[in-house]
Simulated assay, not measured.
Amino acid sequence: MTVALSYPHDAKTGAPRPLQAETLWAVAAQLRDAVARDGSPWALSSRALVAAAKRLQVNGREIASTWDFSQRVHHAAGREVLGVFETDPSAPGLALVSVNGQMIRNRPDLELSTVAHEIGHIVFDAPASVAEPTRRYRSETRGPGCLDGATARAERRANEFMGALLVPPQPLHLRLVARARSEGLRMMHAPHRGRPGCRVLPASTPPDALAGLTAALAGDFGVSDRFIAVRLRRYRLIAGDAS
């Protein structure tokens, strides 16, 4: 099955227009709705994500992808990296993704976030190669720190897409409220980007309680504690956060 996605773009080149975070979240939601579930109502699996991304239609352009998890992956200078996304003029319309199996071994959370990040590159960077078949593109994810600390625009875009694909605002808020209530934690009204009408945690929440809540939410969504902490901040689900 081909999954169709769309967002504002240059009709001639296929390149994305400057996109706000909310637009990236909406594109992520389009794909998330098409990903098969493996029993959890919250967490996605790497296998299901790869399957959904094998054939995409992005803004009307057909993009296929191939994935390799079996090799060590290196950048041009020879240092080992976490993952590589590239297009090649000899294979127009095909995204080539390599994920370093050694670096993600026994780290299902890192595998999941790496896969989601590389799908972000497929969605936003591959369409231009369809419009311009002679164009070669390559991006490298050098390590886990790149998944939440990137500076380049394409990497930040892939990270924001990744975050909303794996941990969307409203499902995270729903689980946050449920778990906070079960722990008897105080909540308050404040502006946020989650589920309308629901309260958020106050900034005065005890650190130990917040850490326990973050760990529980990480288990719900199959990601790391740090991943959840970043999404809570991005969605303003702790009062006073303005990221």
Results as ranks from 00 to 15, higher is better:
A34P: 08
A43M: 10
S65M: 04
W67G: 05
D208N: 06
W25S: 12
S46Q: 11
V73K: 01
N159K: 09
L94A: 09
M103C: 05
A242N: 09
G143V: 04
V84W: 10
R156E: 02
R186S: 12
S45N: 07
A76T: 13
M103S: 06
F221Y: 01
D109F: 02
R72T: 14
D125S: 13
S90Y: 11
P168W: 01
E132M: 14
R55S: 12
L176M: 13
R199F: 10
A43P: 13
Q57W: 03
R72F: 10
A218V: 07
P92I: 01
F161G: 02
I228F: 06
G197F: 00
E86L: 13
E111A: 09
V27R: 12
L172D: 04
I122W: 10
I119S: 12
A180I: 07
I119E: 03
M1I: 01
F124A: 04
R226V: 03
G60H: 08
A52P: 00
L172P: 03
G163S: 02
A51V: 06
R55C: 00
P108L: 10
R231N: 06
S139E: 14
L147C: 04
A21Q: 05
R17M: 13
L24H: 10
W67T: 03
A242P: 02
C198E: 14
N100A: 09
E155I: 04
L112A: 08
L31I: 06
L56A: 00
A164V: 10
T141K: 04
T205S: 03
N159I: 05
S243R: 08
S243V: 15
A216K: 07
R72N: 15
L147D: 04
S139M: 11
A178D: 04
C146D: 14
